[in-house]
């Protein structure tokens, strides 16, 4: 196989595995937006917080899966507190909610900095996925096992969310709510409780993705902005509130960033935003978003 081709295969694999991380981060964001119409500007900060919870729990217990669970649970508890304490009081005022979450994000990030300092933390991957595995057609013949494992994780998240949305009663309410909220409450469903569930789930996904991100990459307090933006771009491209859209958006953005970084490093990050503007100019609701 020629060098050019192995390069390309490797870069695409990099893009797809990065997309897996982006998808897990963005899934919670799109879920919350889809139902609650709340733009959770603290989503990146929740990612950071989840990552630090993971760092601490893994450091104490030595168990990666416990860190993942703790990241999910603690951040979803925080999400419940934020939703009950602040956002539920301004239901429907989407701009005001976005503003409040900006303030929360500033505070979470600053307090993380105060507690953990600015040094990078890494979470050691679970034993099984440490190191590299041999696969043909990639540069050097080896590829990071954890990055491949992220693909499995992303697929598992997708499947779990799909099952919740399509095979459970609350999922039915959520889908109904995404399509028509007024109708949902008219049916006598306790909308407030459905909203709370979704917000907690979305926040938990952000926290969990932080643990995964801190394992694959690393974590510092100032990473919130980047992952908030990635989530924004992914769901804008894919279509707000659509799980499949988030997956497609993540794939496009992950691939574009890695291919860009390989072939045109100077503008690799900018390319992401060109794609987004291009999609929007043609389809304002995103690739899989529902038009009005």
């Amino acid at each position: 196989m020629s060098k050019d081709l192995t390069d390309f295969v490797t870069v695409c694999l990099n893009g797809v595995t990065l997309a897996a991380l982006y998808f897990i981060v963005a899934s919670g964001f799109t879920l919350i937006f889809g139902l609650l119409r709340t733009t959770n500007m603290a989503h990146g900060a929740m990612y950071v917080l989840g990552a630090y919870v993971g760092v601490s729990v893994v450091a104490i217990t030595g168990e990666w899966w416990l860190g993942l669970l703790a990241g999910f649970v603690l951040v979803s508890l925080l999400g419940i507190a934020i939703h009950l304490g602040l956002l539920a009081w301004m239901a429907g005022q989407d701009l005001r909610q976005a503003l409040v979450t900006i303030g929360i994000a500033i505070i979470i990030v600053d307090l993380s900095l105060a507690h953990y300092g600015g040094v990078a933390y890494l979470i050691p991957p679970p034993e099984l996925f440490a190191g590299a595995v041999s696969i043909p057609w990639v540069v050097g013949g080896q590829y990071s096992a954890f990055r491949l494992f992220m693909l499995v994780l992303a697929a598992a998240v997708y499947l779990a969310l799909w099952l919740i949305l399509n095979r459970t009663r609350i999922g039915m309410y959520i889908r109904a709510g995404i399509d028509d909220r007024d109708m949902l409450s008219a049916l006598g469903v306790n909308v407030a409780r459905v909203f709370l569930f979704v917000f907690a789930l979305g926040a938990g996904l952000a926290g969990m993705s932080g643990v995964i991100g801190a394992t694959a990459l690393s974590i510092t307090p100032n990473e919130d902005g980047w992952f908030l933006l990635s989530s924004l771009v992914v769901v804008i491209v894919g279509g707000m509130g659509s799980l499949g859209g988030a997956a497609i958006g993540a794939l496009i953005i992950g691939l574009a960033q890695q291919i860009g970084l390989f072939y045109a490093p100077t503008y690799s990050i900018f390319i992401t935003f060109v794609i987004m503007a291009g999609v929007l100019a043609v389809r304002p609701q995103g690739l899989l978003g529902k038009p009005a």
């Binding site: 990099n14 990055r147 960033q257 490093p265």
Partner: peptide
């Protein structure tokens, strides 16, 4: 030369 803000260096590593 890697742009500031890059988190995932795997493309650079491959290169």
């Amino acid at each position: 030369w890697v742009p500031l803000g890059t988190k995932d260096y795997s493309a650079v590593v491959s290169n």
